[in-house]
Design a binder for these strands. Structure first.
Lengths: 158, 158
DNA sequence: GTTTTATGTTTGGCCTACCAAACATCCGGT
DNA sequence: ACCGGATGTTTGGTAGGCCAAACATAAAAC
């Protein structure tokens, strides 16, 4: 999940950085216009925000105005992307939220989750994917419970 | 979890409404100053925001300036509080996040979570509290896994 | 009853984050 | 070489959300 809790980065900044990272990965380049379109804002707005991010040392400008991420920027983006992936997986694989809804929710929550909580969520997913019988049985039982409101093997009480 | 997804209420508004609800519950009354102190903002800021909430029909003013919630305001506050409770419980009881951290995180996330996702989370908690053997064994195994990185009863693979 | 003190409001200012629209610049096609 | 469309920047404006500080008023204390 990577250390760096320097994230106190704003919602907007987080989205700009992640946009660049995603565009770079998907198309190999990212320009002001691409970021703006990706985020659904105007080029003017993106231009200004990105310039400020350059001055903060998070974003780099190519000789031909192609955008990149500095080491710091890359770390912030990666940390947010990692949190986002964990959250999405948690919602989909454990809670059973549908993909579309999960994507929507994680976009809103991604940069707000603390590193510690994200770490715990990742741990849970690791456990689920460990394939242990407890995990498998739990998921199966919860799946049934979601549908018909019963916990399968009872033994309720406490 | 209550229907009402009219929540597209801002972070700030959400906090003001919840503050009033909490103050009413805890002390039986809520004034501008109390809300301001509760939120850690100045009375001036609270005064302005609360006035706008009155005009939106969410907050009511007593004859002696005591604050209340309209039916609509109460519903919004309750819906957010319910989401918050679910999230906190999820973090603490399932993920094993410590109370303090969970409180911090939920404060940031509470009003952003969709009703559908919150409903799923509540369902998971209901299942956990059903006391079914799958749930109990799962929690126990995950607890061990968190500590020593092993899933207890293996049978891994898939 | 007058003076503190607590409470509420208003004002002016700041910062973020956005838009629209004018402007500047570049780049490809002919 | 020129023009048009795509791209980037700047400018002026709006809105939310906050503060500080001046002000007004209500409640306590004396």
């Amino acid at each position: 999940m990577s250390t760096y809790e320097h994230d106190p980065v704003s919602h907007s900044v987080a989205h700009h950085l992640v946009a660049i990272a995603e565009l770079l990965e998907e198309y190999g380049y990212a320009r002001v216009t691409d970021v703006a379109r990706h985020l659904g804002i105007t080029r003017g707005s993106a231009s200004i925000t990105l310039k400020s991010l350059e001055q903060k040392g998070l974003v780099t400008y190519d000789d031909r105005r192609f955008l990149g991420l500095s080491e710091a920027g890359r770390q912030v983006a990666e940390s947010i992307q990692a949190k986002k992936a964990v959250l999405r997986d948690l919602l989909v694989r454990v809670l059973g939220v549908d993909e579309k809804q999960a994507e929507e929710d994680t976009c809103k929550l991604e940069h707000l989750v603390s590193a510690r909580t994200a770490e715990r969520a990742r741990r849970l997913l690791d456990f689920i994917e460990s394939g242990s019988s407890e995990a498998r049985r739990f998921l199966a039982a919860f799946g049934r419970f979601r549908k018909d409101g019963t916990g399968g093997t009872e033994e309720k009480g406490r």
